[in-house]
């Protein structure tokens, strides 16, 4: 985690790159996770984009603590997205039996 000199407010930043199997999955993850607004927009800014088959996030916050909480929250939601992909991707015509 780096402390950016000069910018007083959102001084802590962190980048995260999450690899997916393909570009389509990265795009789906981006669209599933990015709509939800950040509650304290003046304390934290998160930007989402895809680079090839990776989902790339940039967290900018007023403190390490704010960023840590945001990342923990992001990972929780990411787990749901990845589990959905593991279980449902390419299975639109699949009949699930005995669950």
């Amino acid at each position: 985690m780096s402390q950016k000199a000069g910018s007083a407010k959102l001084s802590s930043t962190l980048s995260l790159s999450v690899p997916f199997e393909n570009e389509k999955q990265a795009t789906i993850a981006c669209k599933s996770l990015s709509p939800d607004p950040i509650l304290k927009a003046d304390e934290l800014v998160v930007t989402y984009k895809t680079e090839g088959s990776s989902l790339v996030l940039k967290f900018e916050g007023i403190s390490d603590r704010v960023i840590r909480v945001a990342i923990s929250n992001f990972i929780d939601n990411l787990k749901t997205v990845v589990e959905c992909m593991d279980e449902f991707d390419g299975k639109k015509d699949f009949l699930f039996e005995q669950y």
Binding site: E87, D93, L95
Partner: peptide, 25 residues
């Protein structure tokens, strides 16, 4: 509660699809 839902949501979706005998299509 959110953690509970996250842990179960995929399993419950699969169970619902399997009981209903329908596919995504």
């Amino acid at each position: 509660t959110a953690r509970h839902h996250r842990n179960w949501v995929v399993r419950i979706i699969k169970r619902a699809l399997s009981e209903a005998k329908v596919t995504g299509a």
